[in-house]
Design a binder for these strands. Sequence first.
DNA 1: AACAGAATGTGAGCACAACTCATGTCAATG
DNA 2: CATTGACATGAGTTGTGCTCACATTCTGTT
Lengths: 217, 217
Amino acid sequence: MAGQNSGPGRRRPVQQRSLERYQRLLDACAGLLDEVGATALTTKEVAHRAQVPIGTLYQFFAGKEDLLAALAGRNLDRYLERLDHRLLEEAPAGTAGFTDLAVDEFVAMKRAVPGFGQVDFGLAGATVPAGVRDDRHLLDTDLDNNTAVALRLQALGGELFATADPAALTLALRVALEAADAVLKLAFRSAPDGDPALIAECKRLVRCYLAEQLGPR
Amino acid sequence: MAGQNSGPGRRRPVQQRSLERYQRLLDACAGLLDEVGATALTTKEVAHRAQVPIGTLYQFFAGKEDLLAALAGRNLDRYLERLDHRLLEEAPAGTAGFTDLAVDEFVAMKRAVPGFGQVDFGLAGATVPAGVRDDRHLLDTDLDNNTAVALRLQALGGELFATADPAALTLALRVALEAADAVLKLAFRSAPDGDPALIAECKRLVRCYLAEQLGPR
DNA sequence: AACAGAATGTGAGCACAACTCATGTCAATG
DNA sequence: CATTGACATGAGTTGTGCTCACATTCTGTT
């Protein structure tokens, strides 16, 4: 169910061995992210950790930026997959229940998944290579991550979001997403496992906003 | 009224000529930010634009990171100053009015002030030099920008925020601040002058959250 | 005015990271 | 066995952040 959601890498590996190396590179990248942070991360060290020569890294990824984007894409796919499972298991009623689940799962991944705390979905990291203006302009690719994620969340929520105006709901989800991401980043800056008070406030913020959005009841 | 709020630079200039060069460096940095973005910005080019030798730049700023932090600090000082003026002039009643003013002024600066769109207050950019753990641990310095800004906003708001629990209000302001910043960043990623729909949603988000916070009335 | 010593200014050069590309490897086909 | 082309490799190129030995300017004392 999780679509391929990586950045515009160089060559997508098709053979078995290459695929393993590709994943190993992402794993090494994630591990290093937690240890040294995004700015201090070097492509040489990532390649070294993954036991892959530096040239091979650049066959799969256009550069450091693209490597991080690919990791963010994998994170997003995994998050949506896990959220989907929990929605089926726990079957919450109403948007408040959905919100709590979505936030809790996000927090769980921030704690457990290497690198997730540094890049999560890369929402704010559009970061066009600087100087070169964006020239891709088709479908999914040109709406930034934010809208793409909002649409996928909306699909997951399904009947929980009963509304007469789906476009307005998409807008609201984009806003809620960006806001929640920022507040949770703050929560994890304040405490290693996420400040509980800030996590609670994050839920309150989103619930309150979405409640006003669809049916003021 | 605006306190000195720059990063932990190297030497603070005291002489007249040095002060001018210091400001010129920040101006050049801001201009370049808008043209090439943060990652493509080079210290050499900043120094060249400011007509200042590269060595001098490194006397004032510990590095590129610190240069950007200093710009963010100047942005914050200017913002609070301008917001303060508008609060006195327009004297809004209630938190909703305060919110609208605060957001509008922020948007105005995003449009008008060079570099503001790239770094604003540097809320998320704590970015410890990577590898070295933070060793300053006194007063203002160790609570990140977020808390510092929230407290200053709280002071500006003054009697508008009548509450029995000031600490809870500070927490709410920190959350609102981080969320609003993220949503407005999104608004300016979507459209050069800021997507009006997203700006409106930002106000709605903050108003709704703060209304629930202090006096559910 | 003349001088000493401190403070500040300067830019060639160093260390190191991102990224390339000529060469090497190897499997499939004629 | 020879030919071909896809894929793998890491020494080398380019260019950035940053330093440091030396030059210049300022400040206070006699």
